[in-house]
Amino acid sequence: MYNYHKKDQIKALDSINIEIKNGDFISIIGSNGSGKSTLAKHMNCLLLPTFGDIWVDKMNTKDKSKTWEIRRKVGMVFQNPDNQIIATTVEDDIAFGLENIGIKPKLMRERVDWALEVVEMEEYKESEPHLLSGGQKQRVAIAGAIALHSSYLVLDEPTAMLDPRGRKEVIDIVKKLNQEENITIIHITHLMEEAAEFNQVIALDKGKIVLMGKPEEVFTQIEVLKQLRLDVPQITELALRLNKKGIDVYPHTLKVEDMVESLCLYI
């Protein structure tokens, strides 16, 4: 279990209490400066809380002797694909973390191959990173994190610099990691359509949790989201507006298909 409790008095984060369970599939939304990146960096000891505690599998992040074990368990992927790839080939980059924790070379090769297979990048094993597309670079970064056999993966706006195709590549892989490899996902984004794909959504503002729940619960809070300077998925907004006009569509609609079905009865 990934247990996260935090009480922090500084502005960046303020009295946050979350509990993340094994296998969760969570997205965190919020505008720039809402504290979402700061929160992410607390999850693997890149930052330590001023007040409160963070527990990862019963280890406190403040316990210096546990830092490396926590970082191995909580993989991180960052926003800029260019600034997190360290080595000059894809395979060497995926091996980087494994080298750091002192894995034996033979086992390392197995892990690298496995990670490449999971992110579907086998054919790029020997490629130079600067020749890959943005989506591919992010998949390499994901592979580098999961090669450490991490149980949790924190992705800090991994799709912000990608085009729609790259975004889809990353989201597909993230879903697969959660479903097939049972890796707990904490995905930060400011794209609402993306957040809608997760099982749980947490909205942050000024370092506080404002909304938390299933996507259909969060995204129907249109007024709150607009106050937070965030978007609302178009289809949810349409559903709510039609609902107000007296048309009996389910107001928590997130999927286009569901909307089409409801509307078919009326048109």
């Binding site: 960096k41 980087f96 973390g97 002192g102 034996k104 070379p105």
Partner: peptide, 20 residues
């Protein structure tokens, strides 16, 4: 940013490091 990414991947210098 690279330094942070390296730290997140458990980088702590050459001590105890193996080679791919």
């Amino acid at each position: 940013e690279l330094a942070i990414a390296m730290e997140a991947k458990c980088y702590r210098g050459g001590e105890g490091r193996t080679h791919y």
